[in-house]
Amino acid sequence: MTTLAVENIVAGYEKGLPIVRGVSFAVAAGEIVTLLGPNGAGKSTLAKAVAGLVPEREGDILLDGARVTVPAHALVRAGIAFVPQTENVFARMTIRENLEIGAAVLPRPRRAGRIAALLETFPALATRPTLPAGRLSGGQRQMLAIARALIPEPRVRLLDEPSAGLSPALVSGVFSDIAAIAAKGVAVVLVEQNVAAALGIAHRALVLVEGRVAHDGPAAPLRDGKLLARLFLGHVEGAEAA
């Protein structure tokens, strides 16, 4: 069943200069869809547009079939959580305070329970909850950002390059966490430059080239890299046949 449907999104930062040009895709519950593409293809802009962070946006976002019209801050309550690529934790605040920020959208009686549950899921965060987030390593920051966004139990997770700046060992840990999140029924949209790691856990891949969808299909056929290389070089599927 489709959890998130993105219909004909046109988005950018200035009026008349769209970066994303009419993109549509859908994500089912428990599915991981990775957005791939060369630099400047519009992957992050598309994720931000879905999260309500891009000033110029046209098109529709549907959550469980209902059109979402709320501003960015209300999307969390609606069930869409976005984790930015960089500066994704409040560095001056402690680990616990970061989690409390995430829990503030929940009814008061549920907050402590959700924070405890997330600290159980990410035990590395539980060891020093009073440590300022700015003193965490890159991997720990990513873990904290993911944990904070998970607290309200979103139905859709948008992750913008969660592997950015992480060592290979940490990347595999973060991607295992993402796969585990999807296995619980969350629809995941994963923007990623680390193509191999993203395709390793994704069910489907959406390849963007110059703001348009060049490929939308299962992730497996892209894993050997040949089709992906052609797509990155600008070969839009169907164009050759035509």
Partner: peptide, 15 residues
Amino acid sequence: RAVAENPALARVAGI
């Protein structure tokens, strides 16, 4: 404090 530090992140955190 969250808005003071990072307004965009605060928005996507539901503030």
